[in-house]
């Protein structure tokens, strides 16, 4: 299973690294401001947007592979 799905596993590892970077200093620092985006504090908006994007990417990586036999 590892061998067959290794590309998927590696892509997911990529998602992990991306998430780890985006959810830590200094990226977090960039968005740690008192301004708001569409009425929502920028830090909240950033965290939830990144979070949702990560989940979307994980779903995409996993479900995509199933289409092909």
């Amino acid at each position: 299973m590892i061998a067959r799905g290794s590309l998927t596993a590696q892509r997911l590892a990529g998602v992990f690294l991306l998430g780890w970077a985006l959810f830590n200093y200094p990226f977090l620092y960039l968005f740690n401001r008192a301004e708001t985006v569409a009425g929502i504090p920028m830090l909240y908006a950033y965290v939830f947007a990144v979070w949702a994007a990560l989940i979307g990417m994980m779903a995409w990586v996993i479900e995509r592979r199933r289409d092909k036999p």
Binding site: T8, A13, G19, W51
Partner: peptide, 12 residues
């Protein structure tokens, strides 16, 4: 967020 990140490594 921690569980979300580790989930990406679940295949390992």
């Amino acid at each position: 967020i921690g569980p979300t990140l580790i989930a990406a490594l679940w295949l390992f």
